[in-house]
Amino acid sequence: MASDRGQVSRTLYDLKSLDGRRLSPFGQRVHLALRHKDLGLDKVELVRFVDKDAIAFAKSQSVPVLVDGDKVVADSWRIANHLEDTYSDRPSLFGGEAGRALARYFNNWCGIWLTAEIASFILFDMLQHLDEEDRAYIRRTREPRFGPLESLNETREARLPSFRKTLDPLRLTVKQNGNLHGAEAGMADFMVAAAFHWAEQSSAFALLTSDDPLYSWSKRINGQSP
């Protein structure tokens, strides 16, 4: 078990933007998990969408990739489990196997629904933070699923009330418990809050109102002032 962060060199490969914004919700999950574990990074390597060769060593097509000493781990869920199991003497991301199962649910829910829903509101705006090659990549890979990105912006105001209503179970849980994980925040919170952080970094379009409990919760989890 490696518990002294001074003894291990740690590098995170994350998504590059033109202006330093964090445009990967999955990379943000790892930043939050590392902060919770009080584990530092020696280096952050920023990689464009099109720079697949930069992370080929990890046998991955996308960030995040964590190099933790001699261990290479790709995918935010696998990284979270690696951090939990390797640094078990530090604050827990899951709080036991029940919490790990809860986090797995939110990992699946974000992957199947939340990430795509948020993307439909902010993808076109996100283009302004990417270089020309990455903008072309986003159009080439996302428009077969979503259609022309400009069209998404034309319909997003009409779609917003339904999206906000669908978040009611999250909203109620946060109001009742303080967090999704419980009294203390855990990996379940980091996964969902990272998605809202991605939205804020990518677009000025407000998915949440400032008086929404999810708004202040997301700001708190992401280490921002409400």
Rank of each mutant, 00 (worst) to 15 (best):
V73F: 02
L12F: 03
Q128N: 10
Y87M: 05
A185M: 13
L39E: 06
V50A: 10
S62A: 15
A204L: 08
S210D: 13
G69W: 10
N108Y: 05
G147S: 13
R159T: 01
N177G: 00
F49H: 10
L41Y: 06
T11W: 02
E84T: 13
E154L: 13
L23N: 07
V8K: 08
R90S: 08
M1N: 12
H82R: 02
S202T: 02
D134T: 11
G96F: 06
L214D: 01
T115V: 03
D53E: 15
G186V: 13
A158L: 04
L32R: 10
A188T: 00
R171E: 07
G96R: 06
T141P: 00
I79A: 08
S218G: 15
A183I: 07
E132T: 14
E157L: 05
S9W: 01
D125W: 06
L123S: 10
R156F: 09
P91E: 08
R29P: 02
W77R: 09
V174G: 09
S60Q: 07
R100S: 09
T173H: 11
S3F: 10
G95N: 13
F106C: 00
P91V: 04
K16D: 04
R171A: 09
G27K: 02
A206K: 15
L23E: 06
D131L: 11
Y13T: 13
L114P: 03
L152A: 03
L127G: 07
W217R: 03
T166H: 13
N179H: 15
V47G: 12
N177C: 04
W198A: 00
R100E: 03
D134R: 12
Q201F: 03
D51N: 05
S218R: 12
D168Q: 15
L149Y: 07
S162C: 09
L207C: 08
G6K: 10
F190E: 01
L180I: 14
D168F: 08
H197R: 13
I221V: 15
P144W: 11
A58G: 03
A183F: 09
A103S: 15
G223A: 11
V47R: 12
K43A: 14
F190I: 02
Q201H: 11
G99V: 08
R145S: 10
L167M: 14
D14N: 13
G40Q: 10
A56Q: 15
T173N: 06
S76H: 08
R140D: 14
R29V: 04
D211L: 01
A199K: 00
H129I: 01
P226M: 02
V65E: 05
P213R: 03
A58L: 06
A54E: 08
R220A: 14
A199D: 01
A80W: 07
W109S: 09
F26K: 04
F196W: 13
R135M: 12
K71Y: 01
M126S: 15
